[in-house]
Amino acid sequence: MKNVKILGSGCANCKRLEQNVRNLADKHNLQLEIEKVTDYAEIMKWNILSTPGLVVDGKLVSAGIIPNDQRLLEMLQ
């Protein structure tokens, strides 16, 4: 099971990203453990400059954007 963290303090795009991740997980039967990180001190450990950030298994894979579904799927698989 992959651990997915969504970094962001409740911005609209953070919510959209979370929704997209959940939708993709449902559609492709991905086993994900989805976590939201909203504390800035914690978020900044990944050295991002814009939210939302996406961390998969401890590795930052995207920041500041909502990747399109194809990219997102690659990141999550």
Binding site: M44, I48, L49, S50, T51, G64
Partner: peptide, 9 residues
């Protein structure tokens, strides 16, 4: 909405 991470970074 990204002003905080940007500022800190």
């Amino acid at each position: 909405c990204s002003a905080v991470p940007l500022f800190i970074g």
